[in-house]
Nucleic acid binder design. Structure first.
Length: 319
RNA sequence: CCAGCGGGAGCCGGGCGGUUAGGCAACAGUCUGUAAAACUGUCGUAGGUUGGUUCAACUCCAACCCGCUGGA
C-alpha cells in the first residue's frame, strides 16, 4: 500500500513550486497546495499562483472569495486529496507556506476541529472588550487562563475561540479522540526551504513589482465587480494593502500608468504590500523553524537541489 | 542680503521645563476552525552645533550651520 507523503514547505519566494514540480516529474507525483490563499478562485496575481504546466496541482481555485475557509476545512479536504492520490499509486507532494495548514495534516494533536464556530457567540463577542473576554475565560477555567502566554491573553480572536470551545463542546472533544490521528501510518518526508531574510526580501520586492506590472490592479478591478472588500478572500494582505487606491478612486484611478512608473500614492501602497510579505516570510520561517522537525535546505547554498534530490531518493526508494 | 518656517533613533512624526509619545521598518517569538490572520517581546534616553537661563532643557534665550518658502 502506497502511503508516502512528501512535503515541501518554506516561506514565500523560496521557489517551492519550482522544486516540487521537478520532484513530481521524477517521482511520478502530484502537487497538493498547502497555501491558505491560493484556494481562492480569481485571486491569482495577488496570491502568487504559478500554474505548473503538465503537473497536476490540487487545492488551488477551490472556492470563490466570498466563501469562508479555514484550517479545519483544509484538514478534511487535504487529507482526502492526499489519500486519493496515494490510492492511484502516485506520490502526493504537499507544497506550501501555510504552516498551520500543513501542520493540521501531519500533527496528530489537533482535536478541537470538531467544535464548530458558533456564529451567535462570535457576533456578540465582537462587541466585548478584551478585558471582558479575559474575565469570561477566567471564570470558565481559571487554571487554563493562568497558563495562557502573553500573546494569547491579549488576543481577542483566540480568546473568543477558547471560550467557544469551553462552552460548546466539552463532551464532543472526548467523542472525537479516536478520530484524531488522521495521518497515522503515513510515511512522511518533510523538506523545508530556507534563505537568509535579506535575500528573501530582495526576491519578494522584485516579485511584488513584477506582479504590479502584469496587471494586479486589473485583477482587483475584476474581483471588485463580483465581490466586496469585506469578503473573506479579500482579506488577504496584498489586496487590503492596495485597497485605499480603489476607495479614493475618483482622484487616483484616472492617473495614467506609464510603464514602470507608479503614481506617488500607489507607490506607498505597494511598499506596504512588500512589507506585509516581509513579515509573512518572517513568521513562516519562524513557524517551520520552531514547530517542525523538517530537513532544512538553504536555497542560497550551492547544490542545494542536488542535496534535496539525494535525500528524497533515499527516502523514496527505501522499502 | 532680509523675513518666515523647520532640523528628533533606519524612516515618518505629535507633545512637553522634570515620569514611555506614537506609527512604520528591523529583529525574536506565540500558534488546536480568520494563520498571507491575530497577538507578544526587543529596538537599552534620540532630539543640527556651540553657548546661556534654570535645581532641571528635546522643550526657553542667543549665535552659528543646514534645508524649504517668500521678498530684495
Amino acid at each position: 500500500m502506497f502511503n508516502k507523503l512528501l512535503i515541501i514547505s518554506g516561506p514565500t519566494a523560496t521557489g517551492k513550486t519550482d522544486l516540487a514540480v521537478k520532484l513530481a516529474k521524477k517521482y511520478n507525483g502530484e502537487l497538493v497546495s498547502g497555501d491558505s490563499c491560493q484556494i481562492y478562485k480569481g485571486m491569482d496575481i495577488g496570491t502568487g499562483k504559478d500554474q505548473p504546466n503538465g503537473t497536476p496541482i490540487h487545492l488551488i481555485d477551490i472556492i470563490t472569495p466570498d466563501k469562508k475557509f479555514s484550517v479545519a476545512d483544509f484538514q478534511k479536504i487535504g487529507l482526502k486529496t492526499i489519500k486519493e492520490i496515494q490510492s492511484r499509486g502516485k506520490l502526493p507532494i504537499l507544497v506550501g507556506c501555510s504552516g498551520f495548514y500543513i501542520d493540521s495534516l501531519i500533527n496528530p494533536h489537533y482535536n478541537t476541529f470538531s467544535i464548530k464556530p458558533n456564529k451567535f457567540l462570535r457576533f456578540i463577542f465582537k462587541y466585548f472588550s478584551l478585558n471582558t473576554l479575559q474575565k469570561i475565560y477566567k471564570y470558565l477555567d481559571k487554571d487554563e487562563f493562568s497558563k495562557l502566554n502573553h500573546s494569547d491573553v491579549n488576543n481577542h480572536y483566540r480568546l473568543t475561540r477558547k471560550i467557544e470551545i469551553k462552552l460548546f463542546s466539552r463532551k464532543k472533544v472526548a467523542l472525537f479522540k479516536g478520530d484524531v490521528r488522521r495521518t497515522e501510518g503515513f510515511n512522511i518526508l518533510h523538506i523545508s526551504l530556507t534563505a537568509p531574510l535579506e535575500i528573501l526580501y530582495q526576491r519578494i520586492d522584485a516579485r511584488v513589482n513584477k506582479r504590479m506590472e502584469i496587471g494586479f490592479l486589473d485583477e482587483i478591478r475584476r474581483l471588485l465587480k463580483k465581490y466586496k472588500w469585506t469578503d473573506p478572500g479579500m482579506q488577504i494582505a496584498a489586496y487590503q494593502c492596495l485597497r485605499p487606491y480603489f476607495e479614493n478612486n475618483k482622484k487616483v484611478i484616472k492617473i495614467p500608468l506609464h510603464q514602470g512608473e507608479l503614481p506617488e500614492g500607489l507607490r506607498g501602497l505597494v511598499k506596504l504590500w512588500s512589507y506585509a510579505e516581509h513579515s509573512d516570510a518572517r513568521r513562516q520561517t519562524c513557524w517551520f523553524k520552531t514547530k517542525t522537525n523538517a530537513f532544512f535546505f538553504d536555497i542560497t547554498k550551492n547544490k542545494f537541489q542536488e542535496n534535496i534530490f539525494r535525500h528524497v531518493d533515499k527516502w523514496y526508494n527505501k522499502l
